[in-house]
């Protein structure tokens, strides 16, 4: 009996992982909706075969992700990813902390004003203390006077807050897992390149895949810039269709912002490798794919 329940539980994991069909969710909420388009084109099929012996230890879990060709999005093969990388539960609090941390970190904090002692000018008393029939005044740099300093005005400062690296790395993988669970993570084999720098070509491609503006825009993540210059230039013109970034330019908020994430396999590998400090004891990141060595 126990084993039967166990089998059932395991099957339910894999069912959860599979993209929901169009007919199944009757009442949908906004954030958990899988858009039908996404489920058709971007398959996050995860099928964990049920173990033959129910008492076998579970061990490290993994999920299967589809690797697609570009730009046809033809599914090429499955690839296995650890569940701790692409199938984490959606911890909204962790994502929130990461997004706030990034927001704080990117604040410039350059607002600057001159206080009364920094304003250029004399400290001479501008009129006698008594007898003029006017208010008492000291020097002309007083914050009360025109041309005077600013009382307690802003000075350049650092707004950055701290977040433990392990929490931040967990947030990265949680963001990717969230995309993967919703079928909004499309993994591309090789490099995303276009044959010629044509806006209409990219527009047509985005419309055909349902990646464009009305489908919530798309974030394209590449390994490097080499060979993608045409595509990047076109994407800069097509800002309302999405954005193209390299793997080290994106952050957690970028991953969560748009309708979907289209990512090169090597870029995903680099992101996962450099954000697993909570899983490994080593502080060194090894095995990153170099953008210069990639074949185009």
């Amino acid at each position: 009996m126990r084993s039967a329940i166990q089998q059932f539980n395991r099957l339910s994991i894999s069912q959860d992982a599979a993209p929901r069909s169009i007919s199944s969710p009757f009442i949908r909420t906004l954030t958990t909706t899988t858009s039908p388009r996404a489920s058709l084109t971007t398959t996050a099929d995860t099928v964990i075969p049920p173990p033959s012996d129910p008492l076998q230890p579970i061990g490290p879990q993994s999920v299967l992700a589809t690797i697609h060709a570009f730009p046809s999005l033809e599914p090429l093969r499955f690839e296995q990813y650890p569940a701790s990388h692409l199938y984490l539960p959606t911890r909204r609090d962790i994502l929130h902390r990461a997004v706030i941390y990034e927001g704080d970190k990117t604040r410039l904090g350059t607002a600057s004003t001159k206080w009364r002692d920094e304003v250029h000018g004399s400290t001479k008393k501008i009129r006698p203390q008594k007898g003029t029939g006017h208010a008492r005044l000291g020097d002309k740099k007083s914050p009360m006077l025109r041309g005077g300093g600013v009382a307690f005005g802003p000075k350049p400062r650092d707004f950055s807050t701290k977040l433990p690296r392990k929490v931040y790395d967990l947030a990265w993988r949680t963001a990717l897992s969230y995309r993967f669970r919703k079928g909004e993570l499309t993994i591309i084999d090789g490099a995303m390149t276009i044959p010629y720098p044509s806006v209409s070509y990219v527009e047509d491609m985005f419309n055909a895949h349902g990646w464009g503006n009305k489908d919530g825009r798309s974030l394209l993540v590449t390994l490097g810039k080499k060979g993608r210059r045409d595509f990047r230039e076109v994407m800069e013109k097509l800002g309302n269709f999405g954005r193209m970034e390299t793997w080290d330019e994106v952050d957690v908020k970028d991953l969560l912002e748009m309708g979907r994430v289209v990512i090169e396999r090597d870029a995903l590998k680099n992101i996962l490798l450099s954000h697993q400090s909570d899983l490994t004891n080593s502080i060194w990141v090894k095995g990153l794919v170099s953008a210069n060595k990639q074949e185009l």
Binding site: R92, L95, G216, R217, L256
Partner: peptide, 14 residues
């Protein structure tokens, strides 16, 4: 109307 609703608006700490 199927709008793409980002998760960003529903994030909050515990």
């Amino acid at each position: 109307q199927l709008r793409a609703a980002s998760i960003l608006s529903s994030l909050s700490d515990t």
